[in-house]
Design a binder for these strands. Structure first.
Length: 837
RNA sequence: GCGAAAGUGGCGGAACUGGUAGACGCCCUGGACUUAGGAUCCAGUGCUUUAUGCGUGGGGGUUCAAAUCCCCCCUUUCGCACCA
């Protein structure tokens, strides 16, 4: 028997061409069908797709294709996160321009994506470095500025000396730059911020809306990052006011322990520190301490082994309720940017304060007690942080600590010495970047008017392309006169344009919305399109963005909603989030430096795109990491060849059929009936696994079982019409259900089966529960809970029948012959368990 | 330390509401066809002392019945980490 060999290269190119010609995956913003928006995190155009991309985009593509077949109007777009530092570095290295490098990379990666057969609506492709895109971002910035959600301030910022730019707090990982791992430094700079903290409460509260749709750990990470704590801000008056200041504010979550506050510790960076020590005999040594702490790098300062160190300023504050003198210290463990940068120390009930007090021989006063009695704290070896009742607290003695929190806060409020306060760990987002390849911030600095926003009609402020990138890696913008020299939009006088550009995370905070009306040049979005498509139904990407991109996008969504750009009821951008695992090789992450790379292009050349996609999805469930193995991809390839062979070896008897098209009357043999049942079960299982559970590996294994069953069936098949109908229908089902995963081979076989329409636009088969019902069921037989055999019983047999049948079996008799039967438990369709003694 | 997730054959992994543990694939073994096989097909494949035996990280518990529910412990991975 001669047959055509499976030639993936030829087939795949053929179908990719056809899909492109017919715009098979372009979707409309209006439809009677329910909508489904599936999105994968768009890539940075680094030049080549890696296996992580292939896995990410394969998962999204299966969903998109499956949902299309299942009757949804599917939006499945792609674009390019095209601004960013690597383009500048590459430009320097290869003596080219960041734009040229970026666009060339996009062309290459787009071709790779097309070669993988991803079903994107290419008409909606966007690149964030194009003015048609970033002009809207500049408009958002102006509106944010107008609303006070963007502002400028000078403060200590994270500086990456290697990237020559500042970083937001979220972009500093373990004290190092998220991009290049260089330890960050602190630098005082005037920068642009977005007021993400204005949404801190909502960002936290709305995590509840995402429960069930997002992985718990991502929710937990965001929860921790936002870091809400409730407590009180307490005012301690200075015993001797210093120039311009008469008090210190502290933040505490334990106002109930206020009577135990025996000293205050300020961060060395606290603005009051220098003034407090002025004129002190120890001024020189204290200043040396401040400089010492400030000069420590961030990693050292935050390490858990850092010894607590402090110095006494010589100054005292007065306890707000008792008037007691409280010494003011400086300590290296107090964080200047959290709360007020100063804490009241209650050594008895806080471990850090306890350690500090022991080291510097400061008083440890117990004010909370489990038994209502005060104890000698000299014998304590650690702080007691748990709640109890108050002692040593004047009128509050005997009050439970929870109640005391309220009472003491109220008391402070009535005295004007404090107030209830909610504190967040989250800080505002610094979006200024001292880089060239980014979106210009649309403001100018006028000699007369100061900081002046551009007029919206002057947008876009174009990033100049005719600049030379300097080998020192610094942005050329401050040296490009044609760019920075401008006129003030307000007074028309001479002005200097802002030369910092925006953090590229700003572009990725709204790109998913732009896809809904990607070609609109009159407005950022078409409101009707937003209302129809948003939120994204399923978002897919790496967990490395659990905080960064996902938090910024959530914030931006709320802000754009309040600015009127988004629908008023759009609170969250991504309804469901799937964080896919990594593709490993030999148990470790693939990396160029380690040289353990599997190149997707090479794999496509060797096995074809369908096999690569199949293996990526079959090897493990999507959230889990998986190891790339040669034998694994061989197995995937073998399966496709097995289908190819099954089809062609039986081509002469195959009819042009659809899935689930055979009838009960066709089942002239038990085998036919069985195969038809399996076919329907496969449609059900694969449909649920692909469309609802996102368990592609089990969907594939179900289809493999059907193929195996077809091989067995074929050997016994007679030549009746009915038997052939059953076989043809099963073949159509294999082709249809597998098509979201391996679309090319399935389109090809579909065509060879005699169909003239694209499989990609065809409906998913409809299964019939009745077809899955068999005459008999296998019932497990247990004695005292242990499996002792099985029996075949008529489907739907009642408890009594099953019990009688079971007790009559040889297995049950054998295992109960010396015992007395006490009880028989029957679960119809499942088991009979005989309890005997 | 805090938080989250996960521990199932030689390996990747199934088992959806407690009801035949190990689907599917890989590896391996034997056979068939072959000049040949790293192709293909067929069969086998949790462990062992082959038993009314053992078995889902370990130990208890609930139940007729537990990978699944409850309690205690161990290990691994990830995230946060002096946030007052």
């Amino acid at each position: 028997m001669t047959q055509e060999r499976y030639n993936p290269q030829e087939i795949e190119i053929k179908w990719q061409k056809r899909w492109a010609e017919s715009k098979a995956f372009a979707c409309s913003n209006t439809s009677d069908k329910p909508k489904y928006y599936v999105l994968e995190m768009f890539p940075y155009p680094s030049g080549n797709l890696h296996m992580g991309h292939v896995r990410n985009y394969s998962i999204g593509d299966v969903l998109a294709r499956a949902k299309r077949m299942q009757g949804f109007n599917v939006l499945h777009p792609i674009g390019w996160d095209a601004f960013g530092l690597p383009a500048e570095n590459a430009a320097i290295k290869h003596n080219t321009h960041p734009a040229d490098w970026t666009y060339a990379n996009i062309d290459n990666m787009r071709a790779q994506m097309k070669r993988l057969g991803f079903s994107y609506d290419w008409d909606r492709e966007t690149a964030t470095c194009r003015p048609e895109y970033y002009r809207w971002e500049q408009l958002f910035f102006l509106k944010l500025l107008e609303k006070g959600l963007a502002y400028r301030k000078k403060s200590a910022q994270n500086w990456c000396p290697s990237c020559h730019t500042v970083l937001a707090n979220e972009q500093v990982i373990d004290g190092k730059c998220w991009r290049c791992d260089t330890p960050v430094e602190q630098k005082d700079l005037e920068q642009w911020f977005l007021r993400i903290t204005a949404y801190a409460d909502e960002l936290l509260k709305d995590l509840d809306l995402l429960k069930g749709g997002w992985p718990d750990r991502v929710l937990a990470m965001q929860h921790n990052w936002i870091g809400r704590s409730e407590g009180a801000e307490v005012r301690f008056d200075l015993e001797k006011p210093v120039d311009g200041a008469d008090h210190i504010d502290v933040f505490t979550t334990r106002p109930d322990t206020l009577f135990g506050a025996s000293f205050i510790v300020m961060a060395p960076e606290h603005p009051l520190a220098a003034r407090l020590i002025k004129g002190s005999p120890d001024e020189a040594s204290i200043t040396a301490f401040i400089d010492h702490v400030r000069n420590m790098d961030r990693i050292e300062r935050q390490s858990d082994t850092l010894e607590k160190e402090g110095v006494f300023t010589g100054a005292y504050a007065l306890h707000p309720l008792t008037g007691r003198r409280v010494p003011i210290w400086l300590g290296n463990f107090v964080i200047s940017t959290y709360g007020t940068g100063a804490v009241m120390s209650v050594a008895a009930h806080d471990q850090r304060d306890f350690d500090f007090a022991r080291k510097y021989h400061l008083p440890i006063i117990q004010v909370i007690s489990p038994d209502g009695k005060a104890h000698n704290t000299d014998e304590w070896t650690e702080a007691h942080a748990e709640p109890g009742v108050l002692v040593n607290s004047g009128e509050y003695d005997g009050t439970p600590s929870l109640k005391a929190k309220e009472l003491i806060t109220e008391k402070l409020e009535s005295l004007g010495k404090g107030k209830k306060k909610t504190q967040f760990r989250l800080r505002d987002w610094n979006i200024s970047r001292q880089r060239y390849w980014g979106a210009p911030i649309p403001v100018v600095y006028c000699e007369k008017c100061g900081v002046v926003p551009e007029k919206p009609e002057n947008l876009p402020i174009l990033l100049p392309l005719h600049v030379k990138t300097e080998p020192d890696g610094k942005s050329p913008l401050p040296k490009t006169e044609s760019f920075y020299k401008c006129t003030c939009p307000k007074c028309g006088g001479p002005a200097r344009r802002e030369t910092d550009t925006m953090d590229t995370f700003v572009e990725s905070s709204w790109y998913f919305a732009r896809y809904t009306s990607a070609r609109n040049d009159k407005a950022a979005f078409d409101m009707d399109a937003l209302r129809y498509w948003l939120p994204v139904d399923q978002y897919i990407g790496g967990v490395e963005h659990a905080i960064l991109h996902l938090l910024y996008s959530r914030f931006f969504t709320k802000a754009l909603r309040d600015l009127g750009f988004y629908p008023e009821n759009l609170d969250e951008p991504f309804r469901r989030l799937l964080t896919q695992g990594m593709v490993l090789l030999d148990g470790s992450k693939m990396s160029k430096s380690k040289g353990n790379i599997v190149n997707p292009t090479e794999m496509i050349d060797r096995y074809g795109a369908d096999t690569v996609r199949l293996f990526c999805l079959f090897a493990a469930p999507p959230e889990r990491d998986f190891d790339w193995t040669e034998s694994g991809i061989e197995g995937a390839s073998r399966f496709l060849q097995r289908i190819w062979r099954l089809f062609h070896e039986n081509r002469s008897i195959l009819k042009t059929a659809r899935g689930c098209s055979s009838t009960a009357e066709d089942c002239v043999t038990p085998e036919a009936r069985d195969l038809r049942g399996r076919e329907h079960a496969t449609v059900k299982k694969a449909g649920e696994d692909m469309g609802l559970r996102n368990q592609f590996n089990t969907a594939i294994s179900a289809i493999m079982e059907l193929v195996n069953a077809m091989y067995t069936y074929r050997d016994k098949m007679g030549d009746s019409e009915g038997e052939r109908n059953v076989f043809s229908s099963a073949m159509a089902t294999v082709i249809t259900t597998l098509s979201p995963i391996t679309p090319h081979i399935c389109e090809e076989l579909w065509e060879r089966l005699g169909h003239t329409s694209h499989l990609a636009g065809d409906p998913w088969p409809t299964y019939d529960e009745k077809a899955m019902v068999k005459d008999t069921q296998t019932i497990a037989l247990q004695v005292n809970g242990k499996l002792r055999g099985t029996m075949e019983a008529p489907t739907g047999a009642d408890k009594k029948t099953l019990e009688d049948l079971a007790l009559a079996t040889e297995q049950i008799r054998r295992f109960t012959k010396d015992l007395t039967i006490r009880k028989v438990i029957v679960v119809p369709g499942k088991i009979v368990n005989v309890v005997a003694k």
